[in-house]
Design a protein around this nucleic acid. Structure first.
Length: 828
DNA sequence: GAGTTTGAAACT
DNA sequence: CAGTTTCAAACTC
């Protein structure tokens, strides 16, 4: 019953959201060029505009009712991602409601095949996007849809989708490329402060105009697929979505969440922030984005629903479905969503919408980048990002707290997500090492303008990317042809990765080989059938994807039941099995906790600790080391020499540690040190994102040089650490340190609910200062200034089952209404 | 690419 | 809980 109601609510919210985005865009668009105005889409949007505000308000209210108020941005992004997928899924299924397995249909038969197919689709999409000049679009309706979808997905996937093509554009025409990037970013970030280039927008407009038919078609298609007039429909949709994207069936709650998120995004557009007003007058870019990306945060889809469209071509649907499939893996777009959330929060005034970024987001993005890299290498266009999946998969683990009363808040699959993140951290590490080796500083800072300053990379491409990121944050095109769309931070990370790759081809190759580098897990399981924690994909809550080399893989959507059952079984054995292995401690937390862990340099710690006997915790055999965190009292390692922090708590001078590759250490430091300036500029950059985009990350150059006394880094374990890149010192008053680290996939303690920290939870002990320090930047940079951020962080932690419930503490006070999904919730 | 090493996961 | 086995990643050659 509850679900039904929720579903209905969801529908409403969705509509609202849709309206909101539209409205915002419309408004902005009005300013835009005449071309845009002329477009039917534009008119349509305008017509919608009047409603928006009310709806937006409605959304806010709804959210409030849900108690999302303090929900961290983190949720947002996931939600957004979910929503996207949801939409896509809906299309598929809706196309064939009768086929519950639609998602699996394609997938089921042969996951591998599907994956491939997806990849192929992605490729096509990429090509389309790139090649298709906005003007050309009229030609192929199906393509159009594809494109639209791509754009929507684009946010996270976008880079994947168009690495080559985009890059090409950039090279040929920097401005155009930038535009393109911008557009996508908007999709991804849902209107984050992305600034759309006039040209790009114009192009889009043209496309849309030319494709007016397509647009209509798309809309109609969407409607068909998305008809959710009834709550029931919504549920159905959710199921569908679940089927494809998540191991565990999503609940109506999830949908709501997604929708909610969307709403915020829409609001985001409206935000007063100057920066938020990404849409430049006359750009029309937003409109373009919007129109181009009906998928965007479902808003588009909703709006589409409103509009009636003709029947959709089956081929189109297929295309779309394929695209969606490709997206399966990537569920988490937190980054963007985070930014959006921020914006929303600002615009809406309701804290509920604001979702502090989740570390996961960043990590995901990083993973994505990695994944993209691999993909680019392999040419597989699949978007499968662990990100998305991670979130989705774990949905259950998410404590009710996060959810608050409304399931919406729930961060599906957080636990898994976290794991994934942890895995991501690995990649991250790699980056560190490489980066350090290269002497370049990895800039994690998302889109902050300052970031580029930090980068030392000699590569022009990187700089270019950075510049782009700064301005747009979204997609960075690398010389190598790879593109990353994500927030600047991600971009930076990606760049760093690239540097690393370049620096050490071997590593790069390795990463790509392993597949983890991308953040997208790759496994090579031969006997476990990918149904055991041995399988990284499974452990991360992800389905195996094309890049995997597993044999007899059951970790596929087609074996969803098996996967779920296995997961449950494993969880029954160890409720924390899918919880993040590494928990990051925030500066604040550290100071508060004052645990032994705080003694250690690393800000993060492995939850269970390692048991290394021979590796001295200096190789990736060691999970702690692999995660870039120091060993803790939880470790049972022998002869610990973990460069990130020894078990005994003794700090290890990075320089001193011979065993540790300097590069690694440096990288670690950088990471740890890197903080996003929550400062204004940064905020703007990362508006909502926790880190993803704009989070300005400042790279601490000095780190590589001389490691400042630990105290310097994490004095009191606080994020107060200096922000090297800018040479700023983080103001004490800053509520939260940047969370750039998210990329690492580690949970920051900040993220960790206060309760957890204080509690005896294993995590609580973790407070270390981390050399890893990774980026402390709060994902919520923009928001960071606001208290809400913390709450969001807390939400993240909630995902961790083992921890005490956040509800008691969290400002967010998110209580999940769904006990089911969260086994761990009970713990709370 | 094959083989070895390693430590987590799984099992007893 | 401890010991053993299994497994797959990390690593080496």
């Amino acid at each position: 019953m509850g679900e039904k109601r929720e579903s209905s609510d969801v529908v409403e919210e969705v509509e609202v959201v849709m309206d909101t985005p539209v409205r915002t865009k419309t408004t902005q668009i009005s300013v835009s060029t005449t071309k845009f105005e002329e477009s039917p889409v534009f008119n349509f949007l305008n017509s919608l505009s009047p409603i928006k505000q009310t709806k937006s308000l409605h959304i806010s209210q709804t959210i409030n009712s849900l108690n999302f108020t303090s929900i961290p941005s983190i949720f947002t992004s996931p939600h957004v991602a979910t929503l996207k997928e949801f939409r896509s899924l809906r299309r598929h299924q809706l196309g064939d409601p009768s086929k519950p397995d639609f998602s699996s249909d394609d997938v089921t038969k042969d996951d591998n095949t599907n994956r491939r197919a997806d990849a192929g689709l992605d490729v096509e999409n990429k090509e389309n996007i790139i090649a298709e000049s906005p003007i050309d679009e009229s030609s192929d309706p199906p393509y159009e849809c594809s494109r639209s979808l791509n754009y929507n997905y684009g946010s996270p996937n976008f880079s994947q989708m168009t690495p080559c093509g985009l890059r090409t554009k950039l090279e040929s025409d920097g401005s155009s490329g930038a535009l393109v990037l911008t557009v996508q970013e908007g999709r991804d970030s849902m209107f984050q402060d992305t600034k759309v280039g006039m040209e790009g927008s114009s192009r889009m407009d043209q496309n849309q105009e030319g494709d007016g038919c397509e647009w209509d078609t798309f809309i109609s298609d969407t409607r068909e697929l998305l008809n959710f007039d009834s709550p029931n429909d919504a549920e159905a949709l959710t199921k569908v979505v679940d089927h494809e994207t998540r191991f565990y069936p999503l609940k109506s709650n999830d949908m709501e969440n997604s929708q909610v998120i969307v709403g915020p995004s829409g609001q985001h557009c409206e935000s007063n922030n100057p920066e938020d007003q990404f849409i430049q007058p006359g750009d029309g870019s937003e409109l373009n984005e919007f129109t181009a990306n009906p998928d965007i945060s479902g808003v588009s889809s909703q709006s589409i629903n409103a509009i009636d469209g003709g029947p959709i071509d089956s081929s189109i649907r297929k295309t779309v479905s394929n695209l969606y499939r490709g997206m399966r893996r990537r569920c988490l777009d937190f980054e963007q969503s985070g930014a959006r959330k921020k914006l929303l929060s600002e615009s809406s005034n309701s804290d509920s919408l604001i979702l502090p970024q989740s570390d996961g987001i960043f990590e995901l993005s990083a993973a994505r980048k990695k994944h993209l890299l691999e993909k680019s290498n392999s040419d597989s266009s699949l978007l499968p990002q662990s990100d998305g999946n991670c979130m989705s998969i774990d949905k259950q683990p998410i404590p009710a707290k996060f959810r608050n009363e409304s399931p919406r808040c729930v961060l599906p699959g957080i636990g898994l997500h976290l794991n994934a993140l942890a895995a991501t951290s690995k990649d991250y590490k790699v980056v560190k090492n490489e980066s350090s080796a290269s002497g370049k500083q990895l800039v994690i800072a998302p889109g902050s303008a300052s970031n580029h300053h930090l980068l030392n990379s000699s590569q022009d491409s990187l700089r270019r990317a950075i510049d782009v990121a700064q301005s747009d944050r979204q997609i960075v095109l690398f010389d190598n042809g790879r593109s990353i769309q994500e927030d600047g931070g991600n971009v930076l990370d990606y760049m760093a990765t690239e540097e690393l790759n370049q620096t050490s081809p071997k590593k790069k190759r390795r990463r790509s080989d392993s597949g983890e580098a991308e953040g997208c897990k790759r496994c090579n399981c031969k006997k476990s059938k990918c149904l055991k924690l041995y399988c990284e994909c499974f452990a991360a809550g992800l389905y195996c994807s094309e890049p995997c080399s597993c044999i007899e893989c059951f970790n596929t959507p087609s074996h969803e039941d098996t996967v779920l059952a296995t997961r449950k079984q494993i969880e029954s054995r160890n409720p924390l099995a899918f919880a993040p292995k590494v928990i990051r401690t925030s500066d604040q937390t550290l100071s508060e906790a004052g645990d032994d862990s705080s003694k250690t340099p690393a800000s993060a710690r492995h939850k269970r600790g390692c048991n290394c006997k021979k590796s001295g915790c200096l190789k990736k055999y060691c999970e702690c080391y692999q995660s870039g965190v120091g060993c803790s009292i939880n470790c049972r390692c022998e002869g610990c020499k973990n460069a990130f922090g020894r078990k005994d708590g003794s700090e290890i001078e990075l320089e001193e540690v011979d065993a540790t590759p300097r590069s690694v250490i440096d990288g670690t430091r950088q990471r740890s040190l890197i903080q996003v300036d929550t400062d204004k500029s940064l905020d703007y950059v990362n508006p909502a994102t926790p880190a993803p985009f704009g989070r300005p990350t400042h790279h601490l150059q000095f780190l590589s040089k001389n490691k400042p006394p630990r105290s310097t880094f994490l004095p009191g374990g606080s994020s107060s650490a200096v922000y090297p890149s800018q040479g700023f010192t983080r103001p004490d008053f800053l509520p939260t340190p940047s969370k750039v680290d998210n990329n690492f996939g580690l949970l920051q303690e900040e993220d960790i609910p206060m309760v957890l920290q204080t509690n005896g939870s294993p995590i609580s002990g973790i407070k270390s200062l981390s050399p890893n320090g990774k980026r402390v930047s709060p994902p919520h940079t923009a928001r960071e200034t606001s208290p809400s951020q913390r709450s969001s962080r807390k939400l993240l932690l909630d995902s961790i089952p083992s921890f005490p419930s956040l509800t008691s503490k969290n400002d967010v006070g998110v209580s999940s209404s769904e006990p089911e999904s969260v086994p761990f919730a009970e713990l709370h």
